[in-house]
Design a protein around this nucleic acid. Structure first.
Length: 452
RNA sequence: GGCGACGUGGCCGACUGGCUAGGCACGGGCCUGCAAAGCCCUUUAAUCGGGUUCGAUUCCCGACGUCGCCUCCA
């Protein structure tokens, strides 16, 4: 039974599926106005792991993840750079999916765009006004949060507490709002801004409306799981929920949020990887699997420090796993069911990937022992390691494909060593290494692996 | 000011009321012509002060410290 921490009820509880064997999940995707950063990477990676794991368990996962392609930030950038806003959103979206592809993140099953759902949003806002939960002002249409039962459930704060706090913060929006927490469903456009017609005036939708409309339309009422970064808990998810509640509709039955990416000592980090906050820099400088590895060794709800030391450590750990894949390639067999059962028990407990990684490394050690002892159990252990890694989206690289010329050099190296012509052997070894080979001296002769 | 999270060995990072997390680095060993790679080993750390308990890193209270949210944000 797969159990997951639910942000709303604040407990780990079984993830109930509306339809047995099928999971419908909604992930808040990016607003496409700039390059993806590490936080985006973490979120997509966390949910990719969840998706792959459940898929491995035999659950059919439908992942809906939106693209916010209309927003103030997009308009600002278009104005600043004097180019059409669609230029920006198109470009950013392709950069986004390119980066996600490099991270090994599977494409969502559905990718709705906000601009394709404006009509439905207008319809929804009309219903909210009709029921008295929303009102128009001179600059837009707002949801009146005081009309929503249980507003603040995800923020863990009552409306009064929110007001009590805030200190010197400036409340954005019109003086006309009935409560400072009221949020825009619709923003009237200024001249030359992108706009769509509505009964209240031309404008564009507020950020929080698209996800309600699209999740309910594609996944239906009472869908299984809604997820996103911890920073979306409030106000974004709170406000999505508020609209659904005001509409009298059943919304997500389970809420999942991943923790933040923490920047440790900014100064030290920037020296070697430049602006590490940018995901593309990380992808350009390191094995893209390293980020997934790092995140797997951290619980998804904990903050994670992404710095050079951390990434290096993950790259090294990955190297060990790859070496194991190369070593175990010949004996690999069907997975050991006992190990798999342990793996499942760990993962079913709120996606405990750190423990699962521990199990993988333990299994590697066991398998190595079995290989050394020529024990028959080795194959199943090797198989289990591969299967567990695959279930987490971690692709192991055996890199044992060796081309003919390298093969010949390796043979010549062995011959030179046998003839005790060590200077020639050393020269051949240097040549191979210069060509990017990892040269291993073993009892069976020289073995080559591609170094990554 | 309100709400919440967290303080673990050289670094990162889990679980857990008593029994080895794990990874990386360091060190030792095996292997090797020498290296490298690989493999094996490296068997007690929990901010401080109280409390509960037979027993607490793990639960409770307090202090100190770090961080997040309180309408930009994955």
């Amino acid at each position: 039974m797969f159990a997951l921490y639910d942000t709303l009820t604040r407990e780990v509880r079984p993830l109930a599926l509306r339809e047995p064997g099928k999971l419908g999940m909604y992930l808040c995707g990016p607003t496409v106005y700039g390059p993806p950063h590490l936080g985006h990477g973490r979120a997509t990676l966390v949910y990719d792991v969840l998706r792959r794991y459940l898929d491995w368990c035999g659950i059919e996962v439908r992942l809906v993840s939106n693209i916010t392609d209309i927003d103030d930030k997009i308009i600002d950038r278009a104005n600043r750079e004097q180019r059409p806003w669609q230029d920006i959103t198109d470009k950013c979206e392709s950069v986004w999916f390119d980066a996600m592809g490099r991270l090994g993140v599977k494409r969502p099953t559905d990718i709705p765009h906000a601009t394709d759902y404006v009509e439905q949003m207008v319809h929804m806002i009309g219903e909210l006004i009709g029921s008295g939960a929303a009102y128009a002002t001179s600059d837009g249409v707002y949801l009146e949060v005081q009309k929503v039962a249980g507003y603040g459930a995800l923020a863990y704060q009552s409306l009064d507490d929110m007001l009590a706090g805030g200190g010197d913060r400036e409340v954005l929006g019109a003086q006309e709002k009935r409560h400072s927490a009221d949020f825009a469903l619709w923003k009237f456009s200024k001249p030359d801004e992108p706009s769509w017609p509505s009964p209240w005036g031309a404008g564009r939708p507020g950020w929080h409306s698209e996800c309600v409309v699209m999740s309910l339309e594609l996944l239906g009422e009472g869908f299984d799981l809604h997820c996103g970064g911890a920073d979306l808990r409030f106000p974004h998810h709170e406000n999505e929920r508020a609209q659904a509640v005001a509409l009298g509709k059943q919304f997500a039955s389970h809420w999942m949020h991943n923790g933040f990416v923490v920047d440790p000592e900014g100064e030290k980090m920037s020296k070697s990887i430049g602006n590490v906050a940018n995901l593309l820099d990380l992808l350009d400088n390191y094995d893209p699997r390293a980020y997934r590895m790092l995140l797997l060794q951290t619980h998804y709800r904990s903050p994670v420090k992404v710095g050079q030391d951390n990434i290096d450590s993950s790259v090294n750990a990955l190297g060990g796993l790859d070496a194991f894949a190369a070593r175990g390639a010949v004996v690999r067999a069907a997975s050991d069911p006992t190990v798999l059962a342990q793996f499942r028990a760990l993962m079913d407990n709120d996606l405990d990937t750190p423990q699962a990684m521990g199990l993988i490394f333990d299994t590697v050690r066991q398998a190595n022992g079995a290989i050394d002892a020529s024990d028959a159990s080795a194959g199943a252990l090797v198989g289990a390691v591969h299967e567990m890694c695959a279930a987490l989206g971690l692709q192991l690289v055996a890199a044992t494909q060796v081309d003919a010329s390298a093969q010949a050099k390796a043979a010549a190296l062995d011959a030179a060593r046998a003839a005790k012509d060590f200077s020639k052997a050393d020269a051949l070894r240097a040549e191979l290494q210069a060509d990017g080979w990892l040269v291993e001296t073993t009892k069976q002769g020289t073995a080559l692996r591609r170094s990554t």
